[in-house]
Design a protein around this nucleic acid. Sequence first.
DNA 1: ATATCTATCTTAACACTGTTCAGATTGAGC
DNA 2: GCTCAATCTGAACAGTGTTAAGATAGATAT
Lengths: 218, 218
Amino acid sequence: MKKRAPAAKRSTAPTRPKPEVGYHHGELQEALIAASEAILAEQGAEAFTLREAARRAGVSPAAPSHHFGNAQGLLTEVAIRGYDALAGALREAASGKQGTRDKLRAQGLAYVDYALRHPGRFQMMFANKRLVADDARLKQASRAAGHAFEVVVAELTGGTAKDAKTAAAAAWSTVHGFAKLALEEKFGSVNNEAGRREIMMTLDQVLNYLWPASGTRR
Amino acid sequence: MKKRAPAAKRSTAPTRPKPEVGYHHGELQEALIAASEAILAEQGAEAFTLREAARRAGVSPAAPSHHFGNAQGLLTEVAIRGYDALAGALREAASGKQGTRDKLRAQGLAYVDYALRHPGRFQMMFANKRLVADDARLKQASRAAGHAFEVVVAELTGGTAKDAKTAAAAAWSTVHGFAKLALEEKFGSVNNEAGRREIMMTLDQVLNYLWPASGTRR
DNA sequence: ATATCTATCTTAACACTGTTCAGATTGAGC
DNA sequence: GCTCAATCTGAACAGTGTTAAGATAGATAT
């Protein structure tokens, strides 16, 4: 078994607030999360194994349990960060536009773009059985992402809160379904850039169809 | 290990075209498919194991390989039947209605109803990595299900074939996304009948919002 | 400075999994 | 009857997640 490089020597100053390596391994949590992300990015959600994540972090397969309890715990942490990143992407997409419909369309495109750029992470985020589904932070992060739709949609409906909820559910369902179907290759190949561009164009048409510009009829 | 009951005695007539039991086990393919369906129904897609399916069919873990190659092959067969059943449900839902919009709404409700009633099977149908994704029969069955939307939507658009494709993609995406999000508990609990009813009502609102009755504006 | 404490990590084991391969079994056809 | 090919078993292999006991080492107290 390969021994990892010895930890960097401690600074001579003993009162350092945050040592550069910390405990034995130091940032094992972060290392395991990074390793998990790498597996998801390289080989997809189905290929993730706890042992492989431990291997990449240079620790024994039992090490992660002390930080995350079990594989679900580690993946939950990954999913939380994934939701945070998604929510950020949605907010940013909306902030770059003026009209409400433009914001909504930009959010839809950003949602699917995120899914296609991080397919493994995205699939894992919505694989409740592999996560600690009732984790408070996970639920909060997920809600925050869904909330990004409500914020924009509320401007659109201008009606009751219930209408806004319905419209947000509609928007989220549409882009989520499109992303999922795209990832399962129902709209053609998604492995090459050309395929992804075509899929994004299809999405644009779908969004135009469901949320036509003001005054347009169908 | 438990010995299964001895096969029923052959009929005295030797020229029977289809013996009631066939080979050693007889209908092992069907038994394995039924066992797999049972696992999916009882414990969900994540809980499926080939060994458990073999156990339930009363054969050794190596037996399935002779009929399906591997676990993916068996699950592909299950998925094909799932798509066939889904396509049938979609066609039947549309056939019971007159107006095009009523057909579309009935299809949407039927789609999500199917997903909520057979969650394990539904999740497996859209888990490409666990199936033989390029199996011709699987792709055909999947296309047939998607085609059910196109048929109804074509009446709605009355435009070019491209418009119909866009509208069908929109409809499929919406109901698929809603079903997926519902199964991941994003719209509340789905484990009890009351929760499912509430979710179906939310879906009805979503469909009314996205495909309003003729003449209605938003 | 030394001893103790406690978080961290390893080692080894356990019960699983899917798959492969050699051989046994058994229905079908000559 | 005999042969043949399809079917199934048994055993093995490499891999998985998880657990328990012990080693290690940073932090803390004396």
